[in-house]
Write a protein that binds this DNA or RNA. Structure first.
Length: 874
RNA sequence: GGGAGCAUAGCUCAGCUGGUUCAGAGCAUCUGCCUUACAAGCAGAGGGUCAGGGGUUCGAAUCCCUUUGCUCCCACCA
């Protein structure tokens, strides 16, 4: 095959992806092999691929491809999430842009639009994943709102309801006035916000005195139903027990109550109580039987309950009321104030605490086995630091508000009967049957299904089970085979939303963990450490990067910087490095590929020696990579490969076996070289699938499988011989020293040099041919005398001389030797200090002491050699 | 307010149970090379008081305490 001198990913990536799909290499069916399963964290169905997905899916693909090559039955299940609130918001915005108000549509009409939107944009993200090379089993693609998954959700809801875990009630919930739905606690993000603290005067009834109350939300005075002070507060000691105050502007008379909840230190020690709009006030309201006056409409404007500021937005109202209070002389003062305000994760608007009727899931029982599983490492977290976070949340778990006042999602399967009461059932027919048990006269037309849908996470928490239909058919062969899954790769930001709940669901419906390991990725940031965001415009389009550097280049960029749990500082330069590495592999293959074999020539000694060494290197690195991968040190495992291929294989091995220009190569060396190349490609394939497949297809041995995707991963059959590697290291140092001499003396590589040495046990005679070839040495000889006219160097204890015919700078040589001598003398003295220390020798382990003694011997020999050279020069 | 984590070369990070010439890698920088696989390359070089302070130890980047700086998570103080 004739190869271009640059690797061009754009010419081959699509070809091989198509090839993999045509040959069905990513598809899995249960069989006798050990399964290896990953379920994808389903991205939002109408979302676009961003850098976070790149990182996450690259890592998953590495794990899956490696498992597949290790002979496991690898199954990576892809899919998308319906993302209830996010998708509904997008559809609402799209309709608005077309001049259609959601409120003007029926549920059915809206859902029609939503499904159209989903059909149009849905799955784009999965197409994008193919560009990355993701080896998902696309035949298994799931959607959280497809028929199977929807049925699973309803089944689970009914099951929990029947177990008494789901209840319905009026509670204070987080209300999103933009999406106009309740949210779970996890969907609220608290941020420090600059606000004001307003000091309002509440006139005491029947007096011209007043009590000053500090509040950040003066507009909520409309809903005030009490004023509260601490019973121990001296300032309010004289206030009669039945004192009442007048709500400013509103004129309503409210009682003054006393409760130790009120902080004496804050503000004036007086608290206005608005039970409908503050969680704490709500609890006070419950305790003292106060009325809760809800003053807001669902969209955050003031309603007509009080008859003031009707229809005005809550923030606008705050401004207006500030003016009105000031005008009325009821504003004591206003101070700047920083406080924590909750914002909706999805729509970004400030959350309004609101009393409303919602569905809740009681979590306490669910949490128990799930907490234990992680604490006892039945499920391992990588890195482990997230165990703490998890434990804390699980041990303080609160009930989950699962209802959302949206249309896009799984509609709650509760059916209300005309005379009150409701039934919960998976189907309308079943609901009717249940209803008729209570009242035989009820017909289908009488039943009214709950309008709300379920929280998105109420479907995704079933994901590892539901993708194998394990909710509806708990004994089906697929779930039995693939579950529990092996690894979950995701971000720590969804540890509560998703991971914790999947674990709970796993134990609830399978009585088994959903996965064995959770690998937490970091957040992808730009090189300045900023989060990538649309607003900053610092988020590159991953597809552009793939087009520019190739999918492999992109994957390498992600791998280079991604140690588990650490944020990724993304820099486009890393993509370039990735691309360069692909090119390196490509060119190495070009070299090997152009060699002509001549079966008649004998194997050169240097090649034999190179092979002796490289056999051990391969063994050592495979072992190391296996070890790193077992610890999920994926980035480091890749670095090992990078250096193995670039430095050891290309930089050393290929150079050692490379025949002279246009000279043929012997058959043995070529066979070994191709074997190494084959092994290296297999090792690298999980990390960089495209370039490895392209080359492997050309290189692969006769009778091999049709794709590297299913080729066997190399194994380390025995332990590497460390002594060989160490001895070769001496030869490398000799070569390096010769190169240095050439550089210093400005001697071209083409010019052959002579090399003399004083023989001792540290001379790597078994790699002499390599030294000769790599150093371009015309002859090697042992000498007994030092040669003052030669450029000299020492490796370990062996003295070497490159004759220079007097062309040496004596002063410079002496200085260099002197510097070395100083260093080694210092080194020796520090070693001696240790060895002469009685306590060191007696308390340090034997191995360490032996090591120090070896250091001593080496240093002494080295010093002797240096001194000899210095003497010879002088 | 509570908790967790981080701080090592200009940048991004390794450094595992305290002990190997332990102070490392990649990138960047500098020097020399368009050497017939690769300039997307090759051969070299410089660069760190391991955040500051204290302690434990024969021995500390590593363990403990403390100060400073940063990050994240949790929490209803109006």
């Amino acid at each position: 095959m004739q190869l271009a001198d640059k690797y061009s990913p754009e010419l081959i990536e699509q070809k091989w992806y198509d090839f993999w799909i045509e040959n069905n290499l990513f598809h899995s069916e249960p069989d006798a092999r050990e399964p290896y399963t990953i379920v994808i964290p389903p991205p939002n169905v109408t979302g676009m691929l961003h850098m976070g997905h790149m990182l996450n899916n690259t890592l998953q693909d590495v794990l899956v491809r490696r498992a597949r090559m290790q002979g496991k039955n690898a199954c990576w299940v892809p899919g998308t999430d319906h993302a209830s609130i996010a998708t509904e918001a997008k559809v609402v915005a799209k309709l608005k842009a077309e001049g259609i108000d959601k409120a003007s549509l029926t549920r059915e009409e809206f859902l029609k639009h939503a499904w159209e939107w989903k059909e149009k944009h849905g799955g784009i993200i999965l197409q994008q994943l193919r560009k990355l090379g993701a080896s998902c089993d696309w035949e298994r693609t799931c959607f959280t709102m497809d028929e199977e998954r929807s049925a699973s959700v309803l089944k689970v809801f009914v099951d929990l309801y029947n177990k008494g875990r789901i209840y319905r009630g009026v509670r204070m919930v987080n209300w999103d006035p933009s999406a106009q739905t309740a949210l779970s606690d996890e969907e609220v993000i608290y941020k420090e916000s600059q606000g004001k603290l307003y000091y309002l005067r509440y006139m005491i009834e029947g007096s011209d005195k007043y009590i000053v109350v500090a509040t950040t939300r003066p507009e909520t005075i409309l809903g005030d139903t009490a004023l509260c002070v601490n019973p121990n507060d001296e300032r309010y000691k004289d206030l009669p027990a039945d004192a009442r105050v007048i709500v400013p502007l509103v004129g309503r008379s409210i009682p003054v109550i006393r409760d130790e909840y009120v902080d004496l230190e804050f503000g004036t020690g007086a608290l206005k109580v608005t039970p409908a709009h503050d969680v704490n006030d709500y609890m006070l309201g419950e305790k003292y039987g106060l009325e809760a006056i809800d003053i807001f409409n669902d969209n955050g404007t003031i309603n007509d309950k009080v008859g003031m500021y009707v229809g005005v937005d809550r923030f606008e109202c705050r401004k207006v009321i500030e003016g009105d209070l000031t005008a009325a002389g009821l504003m004591e003062k206003v101070e700047p104030y920083t406080n924590n305000v909750g914002y909706s994760e999805r729509t970004g608007v400030a959350i309004e605490p609101k009393l409303s009727m919602q569905w809740f899931l009681s979590m306490e029982e669910l949490a128990k086995p799930a907490t234990a599983a992680v604490l006892e490492d039945v499920i391992k977290f990588v890195p482990t630091k997230y165990k703490n976070t998890y434990r804390h949340w699980m041990e303080n778990i609160k009930d989950w508000c699962i209802s959302r006042q949206l249309w896009w999602g799984h509609r709650i399967p509760a059916y209300y009967m005309p005379k009150g009461g409701y039934v919960v059932a998976e189907t309308a027919e079943e609901a009717l049957r249940l209803a008729q048990e209570k009242d035989a006269s009820i017909t289908m037309a009488d039943l009214r299904q709950d309008e709300d849908v379920l929280d998105t996470w109420f479907s995704s928490w079933l994901w590892p089970i539901s993708v194998f239909d394990g909710i509806r058919n708990p004994n089906n062969p697929e779930i039995e085979y693939y579950y529990p899954t092996n690894d979950l790769v995701t971000g720590p930001d969804i540890i509560f939303f998703w991971i914790a709940r999947m674990i709970m669901a796993g134990y609830e419906w399978r009585n088994e963990k959903p996965f064995s390991n959770v690998y937490f990725t970091g957040i992808v940031r730009d090189k300045l450490g900023r989060k990538m965001s649309k607003q900053l415009g610092n988020s590159p389009d991953p597809l552009d990067l793939i087009a520019k550097y190739g999918a492999d280049g992109m994957r390498i960029a992600m791998l280079m910087s991604a140690s588990a749990g650490n944020d990724v500082m993304f820099d486009e330069a890393l993509c370039e490095q990735g691309r360069n590495f692909c090119n390196k592999i490509w060119n190495a293959y070009r070299l090997v590929n152009m060699w002509e074999v001549d079966a008649t020539i004998a194997q050169p000694e240097a090649s034999k020696q190179a092979i002796t060494w490289f056999d051990e290197v391969m063994l050592e690195r495979i072992e190391r990579i296996n070890h790193l991968m077992a610890q999920y040190r994926i980035s480091e495992a890749f670095t090992e490969l990078y250096r193995l291929f670039w430095d050891d294989f290309s930089g050393w091995y290929l150079e050692m076996v490379k025949p002279a220009y246009q000279a043929p190569i012997d058959a043995k060396t070529l066979a070994s070289t191709k074997h190494y190349f084959d092994q290296l490609l297999r090792l690298m394939h999980p990390f960089m699938p495209f370039v490895t497949e392209e080359i492997w297809q050309d290189l692969k041995p006769e009778g091999e499988v049709k794709s590297i995707v299913v080729a066997e991963q190399p194994k380390a059959e025995r332990e590497a011989n460390a002594a060989i590697i160490a001895r070769f290291g001496l030869a490398q140092e000799v070569i390096s020293a010769i190169r240095n001499i050439r550089k210093q003396k400005n001697i071209a590589q083409k010019e052959a040099l002579a090399l003399n040495y004083i023989a001792d046990e540290n001379y790597p005679a078994e790699f002499e041919a390599v030294i000769v070839k790599m150093g371009n040495i015309k002859e090697v000889a042992t000498v007994v005398e030092k040669d003052p006219t030669a450029a000299a160097f020492i490796v370990k204890t062996t003295q070497y001389f490159v004759p220079m015919e007097g062309n040496i700078d004596k002063e410079a040589e002496l200085k260099k030797l002197g510097d070395d001598l100083t260093y080694y003398e210092g080194f020796l003295s520090s070693v001696m200090k240790k060895l002469s220390n009685e306590r060191f020798v007696s308390s340090a382990p034997e191995k360490v002491v032996a090591n120090e003694r070896a250091k001593q011997a080496d240093a002494e020999a080295k010093i002797a050699a240096l001194k000899a050279q210095i003497a010879a020069l002088q």
